[in-house]
Each structure stands twice: as C-alpha cells, then as structure tokens.
C-alpha cells in the first residue's frame, strides 16, 4: 500500500524510523518493529546509511520488513549513487513490491564513518523526485522508454520547519512539490509555535506534512543537536525541564512527555507524525498513548 492513500482518506498518518544495523544481524530490529511499532504506526522509514555511516542497505531491510507484514518506506539519498544506480534501485524497489519512497539529498560523506568516500550528489532531492516521476511516466531521466507497466510510488521528501532560514527551506519545498513530491516528513521539531507558523505558509502547497519528532533523551543530546544538527533547536526551557528531575529524565520519561506534548500542540496543524526514536522504539507506544493517539487499524 502507498501511504498517500492514507492521507487521501484523511487518516492521521503515523510513521517511525528504524535504522538498519552495521552488520546483518537484524533480529533485534524485527522484534522491536513487531513488539512496539506494528500496531502503533502505519509505516516504517528505513534509513539509507544514515548520517553517512555505512550499514546494511535500506532496500534489503525494507524487503525483510515487508516479508514480516510491515509497511516499509524506502529512504534513498543521492550521496552514494549516481543517477544510473538511483533509478535502478527505484525499479528494484518496485520489483520487490516496495511502494513508499522518501527521497533525500543526503548528509555529506565526511560526517560519517567512511570519510574518505567519494561524495556523489549526481542528482539531488528535487531531481531525484523528478526522476521517480519520470519512471512512473514510463521513461528514465535521459528519456529512454522503460519496458512494461510503469511503477507507481508514494513520493515523499523532507523539510526543516524550524530552520533558521525557513524561507530558503520553503523555496526548496516548493521545488519538491513542483517536481512531484506527495508528502513531507519534517526534521525534528521542538518549537510548536515555529512549526505552526511554518504550516501556515506550507499549506499553500496542498501537500500533507507529518510533524517530525526526535525523542530528547538527555541534556547532552539536546546541547549536541543545538550545536551540530541543522534545522533542530531545543529551547532553553525544555533543556531546563530535562535537567529538573534527573532520575525521571534518565528513565526516559521526560523525553516521552515532551514528545506527547508536542504532538498535542501541533496535531491540529498537520496530517501526521513521524517519530525518530534513535533506538528508543520501545517508548513510541507510550508517547502515542499519552498524546491520545489510538493504535492504527490495519
């Protein structure tokens, strides 16, 4: 199923992110997905060598999850593949019955664990969306015909609502919509007022947006994100909240409460939630319960 069908039915679309392991032992990922995510989210994003750290591939992991009865979203970045490999992988996804894509430019190579690698960026997020749309129309990027019935995907992309240059982000968002993007997931949001203001401007594009959440695990993580992670800013009062009850924060309960509160404050302004739990998949059911979001019906 394409998740665009859910948006069309006015469902509040819930997704969570899982990262393939650095290695092929994937039992833990599957167990967590069944235990904590299957009944709580509609689909699972599978990251593509997230943060430029080399891992097992997104496409293979998507196939494993699909075989387990879960709905995967294949994340594809332009960092490691040229247009031949990107288009080929998109067709491979169709062959494997994977119909949901999240199309990204990708972090730079030097941020990861193989900094010597050649950065590719032959295409970018916008031209990759365009390339997928062309495949759906029966042609590759060079205009050559693709044999047989063309594939059909739900084409998604990302945007940063709390970026310090949100106007520049909105211009890119518009380019993505024009290229054929059908849904957006956002970078982690900690400032509901900024998100709501962003949504006021973004709604002109008529494309559904899922609020992105990164569970704040501790003060150090928040300070690190404030210094290093683009588009993410954890406000001082939230850092104070994490500091206030050290035991509660250590147990993860403060982060869960913050996420639930963010969902409540933003949910009337967006069409879904995307949770990046970074290993805390087991806390997602609590967050959704606390935010008053019922299990998904499949």
């Amino acid at each position: 199923m394409r998740i665009t069908e859910l948006f069309q039915r006015d469902e509040f679309v819930l997704t969570a992110e899982v990262g393939p392991p650095k290695g092929v032992e994937i039992d833990h990922l599957i167990k967590d997905a069944h235990e904590y995510l299957k009944t709580r989210v509609h689909a699972l994003n599978v990251t593509d060598n997230q943060s430029s750290v080399m891992r097992t591939g997104s496409l293979a992991t998507c196939k494993v999850l699909k075989d387990e009865g879960l709905l995967p979203i294949f994340q594809i970045t332009c960092r490691d593949r040229n247009r031949i490999a990107l288009q080929s992988d998109v067709l491979s996804a169709a062959l494997l019955g994977i119909e949901n894509l999240l199309l990204l430019t990708g972090d730079y190579t030097t941020l990861g664990d193989n900094p010597q690698a050649k950065p590719v960026f032959d295409l970018d997020s916008v031209s990759l969306i365009h390339a997928v749309k062309r495949l759906e129309e029966g042609f590759d990027l060079a205009g050559n015909a693709v044999d047989g019935a063309p594939p059909k995907f739900a084409k998604g992309a990302v945007v940063s609502p709390c970026s310090d240059s949100v106007d520049v982000q909105l211009a890119k968002m518009e380019a993505k919509v024009k290229a054929g993007c059908e849904y957006f997931q956002t970078q982690g949001v900690y400032e509901p007022e900024k998100f709501i203001k962003f949504m006021e401007q973004a709604k002109q594009f008529g494309v559904p947006v899922q609020l992105g959440l990164i569970i704040p695990k501790n003060v150090g993580m928040c300070r690190y994100m404030n210094a290093n992670v683009a588009g993410v800013h954890v406000p001082d009062d939230m850092i104070e909240e994490l500091k206030a009850d050290k035991e509660k924060t250590k147990a993860g309960d403060t982060g869960v409460e913050i996420c639930a509160r963010l969902i409540k404050e933003c949910k009337d302004y967006c069409q879904g939630v995307h949770i990046m739990s970074l290993g805390w998949e087991n806390r997602i059911p609590e967050i959704l319960d606390m935010a008053g979001i019922a299990p998904v019906s499949k």
């Binding site: 730079y108 950065p119 960026f121 916008v126 310090d164 240059s165 982000q169 211009a171 992670v229 683009a230």
Partner: peptide, 14 residues
C-alpha cells in the same frame, strides 16, 4: 554538494 536545485537540510546558522 554542488547542488543545483536549492539548499539542502544541512545548513545551520547560514
């Protein structure tokens, strides 16, 4: 990244 279609999500404080 020599991008030709606009800013990526990696800029912070410009």
């Amino acid at each position: 990244k020599s991008l030709v279609n606009g800013q990526c999500g990696g800029a912070k404080n410009g």
